[in-house]
Computed example of a mutant assay.
Amino acid sequence: MTRRVRRFSGGVYDLRYHVVWCPKYRRPVLGGQVAARLEELIRAKAAEHDWEIIALEVMPDHVHLSVKAHTKDSPSRIANQFKGFTSRVLREEFPHLRSRLPTLWSSSYFVATVGAVSQDTVRRYIDTQWERPWKKGGEGA
C-alpha cells in the first residue's frame, strides 16, 4: 500500500482516525433504510469537509468509521460533525427514531489515531537519529 500524504503551505501530513459511536442506550435502530441513509449522510459530510473515508461500517447498534482528516480538524470536531448532522437529518426523515429515543446518538464516542507505522518504529526512529549517516560527520540534516 502506498502512503498518500496531504500537503499544505505549512507542511505535510497523514492523519487518520478510527471513530466509533452508538445510538442512545445502544439500541439496534440502524438497519435497513436507516443504515443506507446514514451511510449516504456520512459520505456527504465527509465530502463537505474534504475528509477521505477509508472504511465505513454501519452495524445495527454502532458505527465504525476510518477517516483521513486535515490538521485543522480535531478528532472531537470530526465525531461531532458526523453525529450532529446525521442525528438531525435521520430524525427528520425517520419519525420512529424520535419516538423511540430522546436523542439518536449517545453523548460519547471512541476515537483513536491510526498510524502508518507502529509506536515502536517511531520510537526507534527518534532514538537512533544520531546514528544516521549524514549526522555522523557533524553536518546538519
Rank of each mutant, 00 (worst) to 15 (best):
residue 104 L to Y: 04
residue 25 Y to N: 06
residue 123 R to E: 10
residue 124 R to Q: 11
residue 27 R to Q: 12
residue 60 P to R: 01
residue 115 G to M: 08
residue 11 G to S: 02
residue 120 D to M: 07
residue 76 S to V: 14
residue 84 G to T: 11
residue 45 K to R: 15
residue 76 S to M: 10
residue 12 V to I: 05
residue 53 I to G: 03
residue 58 V to I: 10
residue 61 D to M: 12
residue 80 N to I: 03
residue 26 R to S: 03
residue 109 Y to V: 06
residue 23 P to I: 00
residue 52 E to C: 08
residue 123 R to H: 11
residue 20 V to N: 01
residue 91 R to G: 06
residue 108 S to V: 12
residue 46 A to V: 06
residue 49 H to K: 15
residue 53 I to Y: 03
residue 39 E to C: 07
residue 86 T to Y: 00
residue 93 E to C: 08
residue 121 T to A: 12
residue 139 E to Q: 14
residue 105 W to H: 07
residue 87 S to L: 06
residue 53 I to K: 08
residue 114 V to Y: 01
residue 60 P to W: 01
residue 108 S to P: 08
residue 88 R to Q: 13
residue 61 D to E: 13
residue 108 S to Y: 02
residue 57 E to K: 08
residue 94 F to P: 04
residue 93 E to N: 03
residue 80 N to H: 10
residue 73 D to G: 02
residue 112 A to V: 06
residue 90 L to I: 08
residue 101 L to A: 00
residue 78 I to E: 02
residue 30 L to V: 08
residue 10 G to E: 10
residue 62 H to V: 03
residue 13 Y to T: 14
residue 85 F to K: 11
residue 138 G to R: 10
residue 41 L to C: 05
residue 94 F to K: 06
residue 5 V to T: 11
residue 92 E to L: 12
residue 49 H to I: 10
residue 45 K to T: 13
residue 89 V to I: 11
residue 79 A to L: 02
residue 123 R to G: 01
residue 87 S to Y: 02
residue 33 Q to I: 05
residue 27 R to K: 12
